[in-house]
Design a binder for these strands. Structure first.
Lengths: 190, 190
DNA sequence: GTCTATAATACGATAGAC
DNA sequence: GTCTATCGTATTATAGAC
């Protein structure tokens, strides 16, 4: 039975407030109040407000990565695997709208220290990169420069989740679901 | 002969600092100091720090739109027109790296009021939308839902500019230049 | 671990002279 | 329009009891 600690409550509350009001628009006092803890408690668990932000960022990225790994399927058919990966990734975003919104908002901002951004971003991009390289070696994907293709794929994922989070009912519509994958797949396939 | 007013200096300084340190990480005192004006002068030209931010956001978006309009070419060949548009758009970003970085950072953040974001975003998306619709009617572009295609195209533009701004020398390489367009064009073309 | 103060300070914005 | 000086406030973080 999972016990919800005060530390977890602080993290969840901070997530919601940072997404809604921004990092600097959210005081530590408000986070503490909304999480029903004292400010002293907040600073007991996190050395500083920045530290809280960083832990949040890292934990969300890990959550996403774990989810992808747990749902991995390898059929041998590259396109089918890509489609499964694409749907799994967007599905996670739909089930974790706050986390996805948080990432959209802060992965490019100056609030997160550059070294942390770089580290988490690299793990995502490497994952995409491995997939693309495999496809290129099979002769199924375009031979554009890898780094450019990685950025493009990631950008398309971000764009699709932006759209579906703004229009959640469309994610239930097979036409839209397939269209989002097709836009992605056509761009990289030969 | 263009006279550089103090107001302009404040805007330019604020742009550089907001990109480098973020909005809340940049005090009005620092903007004033770096622009060689007094804080009183800053608040004479801008009602508040927020107002300064908003004017900056709007003026940058207008600058981009004007540039696109001034470089418009219609050859009758849709793909060729698309390529010209694509190159012109990225070229602007390469010539205005601070403005492009500013837009990447703040168009999704909570710092800019939602109504301003919506207004400027709509003008961009409508522009893309008109183009896609024309192509669909000609039977040259995929018939995916328009809103999804708009978001996808915009996302690919943002991804490409992120890549080329991080690797400016690659924009001079015809292979990379063409690859970025091809990734975009293949995703939407039939 | 958790709480209630409160210290220390940085910041946006104004007043008023020139 | 521009400046200097300053006010009021909001905010992070700490101290110390429980």
């Amino acid at each position: 039975m999972p016990k919800i600690t005060k530390k977890q409550r602080i993290l969840e509350t901070a997530l919601a407030l940072f997404v809604k009001q921004g990092f600097y628009g959210t005081s530590t006092a408000l986070i503490a109040k909304q999480a029903d803890v004292a400010t002293g408690t907040l600073f007991h668990h996190f050395q500083s407000k920045d530290e809280l932000m960083n832990q949040l960022f890292i934990s969300i990225k890990q959550d996403f990565a774990t989810n992808i790994l747990n749902n991995k399927q390898e059929s041998g058919d590259l396109k089918q695997d890509a489609q499964h990966l694409w749907n799994t990734s967007i599905q996670w975003a739909m089930e974790n709208p706050l986390k996805q919104a948080f990432f959209q908002q802060y992965s490019l901002s100056t609030v997160i220290p550059a070294n942390i951004k770089k580290h988490t971003m690299n793990s995502t991009l490497q994952f995409i990169g491995d997939f693309i390289q495999a496809g290129q070696e099979m002769g199924l994907l375009s031979n554009h420069p890898l780094a450019l293709m990685q950025e493009s794929c990631h950008g398309q994922y971000l764009a699709s989740t932006r759209y579906f989070l703004d229009n959640p009912e469309k994610w239930q519509d097979p036409t839209y679901k397939l269209a989002s994958f097709t836009l992605f797949w056509q761009s990289i396939s030969l």
